[in-house]
Amino acid sequence: MPAPVEARGLVKRYGEIVAVDHVDLTVAAGDVYGYLGPNGAGKTTSLRMLLGLIKPNEGSVRLFGRDPLVEGARALQGVAGFVEEPRFYPYLSARKNLELLAAYDGGGARERIDSVLDIVELRDRAKDKVRGYSHGMRQRLGIAGALLRDPRLLLLDEPTTGLDPAGIRDMRDLVRRLAEQGMTIVLSSHILAEVEALCDRVGILRRGRVVFEGALSELRSAGGGTYALRTTDQRRALELCEAHAGLSGVRQDDGAVRFSAPEEAVASLSIALGDADVGILALVPHMPTLEELFFDVTESDEADRAPAGAAQAGS
């Protein structure tokens, strides 16, 4: 069976701004995929392209093997979700809104209305007009609207934004429950802890580009560690470190030489130091937290990562 989401080389430009810049996304069946990125990174824009709401300038989307640009609504079979805030007709009741959506869905959607209202705990408020709904209630109604489609793939754009702590907990419990039932879920977020709590795979987006994709555990190891080195001859140690292959960000501060490196490079460095008669007093690894890694990949200012369009627009 084709993968729930397979996007290749997605590009979306808004004038000078490259909102999404050659993004590849693959989400396998059963994944709970965290789509992470700071504000303006292009998460919503990517999800809009997945849902067929906007056309990519380049690249293609396949949902269960179907292209929304070619097959239209048929490509959304088994797919549900919303981008940004879910929106409803304010002058209709929640139930009427769901009845409308169920009519547009066809199939057995109408029979599911009561059960989805129960899932999001809105059954007793269902006859109230959506006009009077709080933000949290609308968010829950959005989930109800998506579940009406009985989806195999659920796309959620920052579903916990603006919710109170209890609302956040309930939303996360719900996502976890749906995932346990085998639903594939793509969840965008800028909160790392949320993704850490819910997702097994992440894609990290920065200024429209995917700067990391893989399991969270890979993110931890890919970041490697930073090390602090104290020796009998710091001047010589610094020279050796700078010359040693595999080390990066070598600098001296606080009386220690600091650098980042994978473990093999550290091992060979210690031998090189010994060979050069430099005695090691301390070689202390510092493992970054996920939070630090997130900032590392989303805020590093390496020129090759800056998308051309966005950089010009900003200055």
Partner: peptide
């Protein structure tokens, strides 16, 4: 304007 276009265009009906 109300944002409901995205709501109805992500169901099973073509545009």
């Amino acid at each position: 304007h109300n944002g409901t276009l995205k709501t109805i265009l992500t169901r099973s009906l073509d545009r």
